[in-house]
Amino acid sequence: MRITVLRSFFLLFIFAFTGLYAQETAIMVRAKAKDAKFIGSSVGGAKIYIKNAETGEILAEGLTKGSTGNTEKIMNRPRERNENLAKESTAGFLANIDIKEPVFVTVEAHAPINKKQATVISSTQLWLIPGKDITGDGVVLEVPGFVVDILSPQTHERIPQTKEVEIMANIILMCGCPVTEGGIWDANQYEVKALISSENKQVNEVEMKVGEKPSTFSAKTNLDAGLYEITVYAFDPAAGNTGVDKTNFIIN
């Protein structure tokens, strides 16, 4: 009887003692472009932060790495309940966090991290429970917008007044997915314009059209001598995606 009591006490002690130790808990985080695919290595990835929501302590951070995923599965096929969109090679960030008790966390995606003029923050909050892994698709953060890069005119470029100004911009989804005429991301459904201003006054608005090269929009205009700022924007009225880039140039 005494041995049984001692054994029970010993087991209770061991259980209580081991309960003080943290358990490794896995959480997969992915960033997915709105109306498009996952944000991964091809655009530099999304920077992921997992923070204690109460204290702000960063529990884990890293980049999503991998491919943008299967286009047919993500964009064209109906999705069944609990069906994963991602596969092993699909971009994501897997964090392994040691926790002793449930922790309420904030999960942030800064994406695409290498395009500062286009980077947005998408976030959500949830409880992490020790030993209860969140894998598969995991936590998927939607990232709206376009990446807009003005290719021409170059910053501070001097253009003769006698010469036509060529405006050119590269426009892609946040995952790097291309914009093409008649494609999955159809250039014909997007509004792309260049707003040209001088001394904070708009002097011209030019509609830009997609060319033969995927994701490249262009237009031409004539301007008087002066200092100019150009703003190129892209807008998708169906999905609500938007994107902007700016530069300055000089007409001699």
Results as ranks from 00 to 15, higher is better:
59 L>P: 08
45 G>P: 03
221 T>R: 03
241 N>M: 14
246 K>L: 00
137 D>F: 04
211 G>E: 00
201 K>P: 01
188 N>M: 13
7 R>H: 08
141 L>S: 10
225 A>P: 02
26 A>H: 07
70 N>K: 10
16 A>I: 13
173 L>I: 03
74 I>L: 07
217 F>V: 02
30 R>E: 10
38 F>M: 08
247 T>A: 03
68 T>S: 15
178 P>M: 15
58 I>M: 11
19 G>E: 10
42 S>G: 02
190 Y>T: 05
199 E>P: 02
164 E>F: 07
123 S>C: 11
2 R>E: 09
12 L>C: 09
118 A>C: 00
17 F>S: 06
59 L>M: 15
7 R>E: 09
65 K>D: 07
84 N>F: 14
115 K>C: 05
214 P>E: 14
234 A>W: 02
140 V>P: 15
156 H>S: 12
170 N>A: 11
245 D>Q: 01
63 L>W: 11
144 P>Y: 08
75 M>I: 12
142 E>R: 14
247 T>L: 01
112 P>V: 02
220 K>G: 03
172 I>D: 08
137 D>L: 02
154 Q>F: 12
204 N>Q: 06
154 Q>C: 09
160 P>C: 06
110 H>L: 11
5 V>M: 13
223 L>D: 06
95 A>Y: 09
159 I>H: 04
153 P>G: 12
111 A>Q: 01
208 M>K: 03
249 F>Q: 00
73 K>R: 14
159 I>S: 09
35 D>S: 10
17 F>K: 00
81 R>K: 15
186 D>Q: 14
107 V>P: 00
32 K>S: 13
108 E>M: 07
215 S>W: 09
5 V>N: 13
173 L>A: 08
48 I>N: 04
120 V>K: 04
38 F>H: 11
87 K>F: 12
152 S>K: 13
40 G>Y: 08
177 C>N: 11
166 E>Q: 06
151 L>A: 12
103 V>N: 08
119 T>H: 05
207 E>L: 03
247 T>E: 00
199 E>A: 03
145 G>R: 03
247 T>K: 01
182 G>S: 14
65 K>P: 06
2 R>L: 14
72 E>L: 14
41 S>L: 01
233 Y>P: 00
128 L>P: 08
178 P>E: 14
163 K>L: 06
182 G>M: 07
88 E>Y: 13
149 D>N: 10
67 S>P: 06
147 V>P: 09
143 V>A: 05
127 W>Y: 13
54 E>G: 12
71 T>R: 15
39 I>F: 13
40 G>Q: 10
122 S>K: 01
251 I>F: 07
16 A>W: 11
213 K>F: 07
175 C>H: 08
191 E>K: 01
27 I>P: 04
115 K>R: 10
167 I>F: 05
158 R>C: 12
233 Y>L: 03
118 A>N: 00
110 H>Y: 13
178 P>S: 15
26 A>T: 06
115 K>T: 02
2 R>I: 05
27 I>N: 00
24 E>F: 04
36 A>T: 09
139 V>T: 09
